[in-house]
Computed example of a mutant assay.
Amino acid sequence: MIRVLYFSTAKTVVTASEVNQIAAASSVENEKRSITGALAFNGSTFAQVLEGDEAVVDPLMNAIMADPRHTGVREVMRKEIDHREFDGWGMKLVGGLEFDLLLDSMAK
């Protein structure tokens, strides 16, 4: 199992409502794939952690990179894990400035 952290920049103005919709839709889809994680957005930058089997996370990362709502997707950390930090969360939406929560998950 792996944990991946990426950052990207929104192409347009993204409202809190839109971020909530993204997180809700991602949660449903991720649960179908046994992917867990967390998403943060500070008004211009997205940060997201994904956890799951590499064979499932990698195709999702490819789809994320192709998503036209953001640009400059940069995978900044990838590591093998033996337990999930966000177990039970298809996609947990964290406060926009809580990037530290995502970064801390990579240190574990």
Rank of each mutant, 00 (worst) to 15 (best):
M77F: 11
D87M: 13
V76P: 10
N30Q: 04
A38G: 14
H70F: 13
L50A: 03
A47L: 09
S17N: 07
L97H: 14
P68I: 00
V49F: 08
L103A: 09
L101P: 02
L102V: 04
L5S: 02
S44V: 11
D104Q: 13
G43N: 12
I2E: 00
L39G: 09
R69Y: 02
V28W: 06
M65W: 01
S17H: 09
I2D: 00
F86Y: 09
D58V: 07
D87Y: 14
I35M: 01
F99M: 12
K79I: 01
W89M: 05
G88S: 07
D100Q: 15
D82L: 08
V28N: 04
L5Y: 02
G95P: 15
V14I: 15
E18D: 13
E51A: 12
N42K: 09
S34I: 01
V4K: 04
R74Q: 05
L101R: 05
A47H: 03
R74P: 00
L97A: 15
D67F: 14
D87Q: 12
M65G: 05
E31Q: 14
A63R: 08
V13S: 13
E54R: 06
S34A: 13
T36P: 12
W89L: 07
D58I: 03
G90S: 11
M91C: 14
N42P: 15
G37Y: 08
K11E: 13
G52N: 02
D82Q: 07
I2Q: 00
G90C: 10
G88V: 06
G90H: 04
M91A: 03
E98I: 09
M77I: 05
P59F: 11
N20A: 15
L39R: 03
S34H: 06
D100T: 11
A63W: 06
A40W: 11
S34L: 06
V76Q: 09
L101E: 10
